[in-house]
Design a protein around this nucleic acid. Structure first.
Lengths: 190, 190
DNA sequence: ATAATATTCCTAATACTATTAGAAATGGAG
DNA sequence: CTCCATTTCTAATAGTATTAGGAATATTAT
């Protein structure tokens, strides 16, 4: 039994691979240990248990998502930024559906770290929306609005609620455009 | 071992109680069997397995939700109906958070029954939104829009994303009002 | 280099899971 | 009262997470 040079990061990254490969419901410490050439009990040196692993995975997913959102918004303004972010958001969920589910699986109040990472996502939206108004409460309001649209749409789509013949890709873009229309009104008024 | 006169319905209803009491993650066939004064193996006479039970629970939750939505919309028109439905939706999730999660836990494509029940929810929205326009594609579009808002908002709220000092109750109502504004435009144009 | 120490990993066991095969008990129909 | 379908149970299997304590390995101090 030569040491594998494991640490928490490697364990979590490998878990993320397994989650995206076979679905998070089928992730077990046995499979994870196998992939790391180690026995299940050895994992407890690096993680407290599977629940903590779930939190780490949710945190990782949230970081990846926020990074893509940030990158998409980079250098863009208002409507262009919002459209780009919505595409990035939907792409992330399409390419990492299982990891995205991890984000919603865990109540964020369980982890200070998770709350902090969640704030990154919100800060991206806040920054864009602050280009429309200086009113803080309005920014938070529209941030919740926009976030709800994004998460609601991709989740319902995945769950199978949008089984009509109309493309869901086009739907989300049109939807975001409608949302932007309202923001533009806010812009012209103030 | 006198017979307990079980059937699928009783099993599912009792499971729903346990889910709402202790969270759906902690539901086990052992606990369910105990509550029904029966051994775990006996449950297999009434359900194929725990996965089927999950589908039944999701279906039950969706039925309850759609019933509350239908009831709320009863006799109301356009904006009033939409506001009432959003309150009903948010109330259902607040009062049955664990059952609501069951709905999103299962990919609906797994069950014809689930798809059918999902259509009831959509039909409620469709009926209300058809009061604004006769254009079918527009109705579906706004139906997805509204549904995304409702599900997205309550989910993010529950996950802990809305941890600012602003009330989430008020936020949702304002949000729906904003949405209705856009629909009213649609109404006046056509 | 060698000894002491800390760390990683393993073995073995425990307590839960869901699930199945097949036997026993039950209740209703003829 | 007997037969039969149905329900429930016993017993076993295989797969979970988790823990205690020991063995192996790497690191540090002498």
């Amino acid at each position: 039994m030569p040491r594998q040079g494991l640490n928490t990061e490697k364990v979590v990254k490998t878990a993320a691979l397994l989650v995206e490969e076979n679905g998070y419901e089928s992730l077990t410490l046995h499979k994870l240990a196998s992939k790391l050439n180690v026995k299940p009990a050895s994992l407890y040196t690096h993680i407290k248990g599977i629940d903590e692993l779930y939190v780490f995975l949710a945190n990782m997913a949230l970081k990846q998502l926020s990074a893509m959102m940030l990158d998409a918004a980079e250098g863009k303004k208002r409507g262009d930024a919002l459209r780009a972010v919505s595409v990035a958001y939907s792409n992330y969920v399409r390419q990492n559906p299982e990891m995205y589910q991890m984000i919603m699986k865990i109540p964020h109040s369980n982890s200070e770290e998770l709350i902090k990472t969640g704030r990154i996502v919100k800060s991206v939206l806040f920054k864009i929306l602050s280009q429309y108004t200086a009113d803080n409460s309005k920014i938070i309001f529209y941030s919740r609005y926009y976030h709800s649209i994004l998460h609601g749409f991709v989740s319902l789509d995945r769950a199978g609620f949008f089984d009509d013949k109309f493309s869901t890709d086009v739907s989300l873009l049109n939807l975001v455009d409608k949302f932007i229309e309202q923001l533009e009104e806010l812009w012209t008024i103030s």
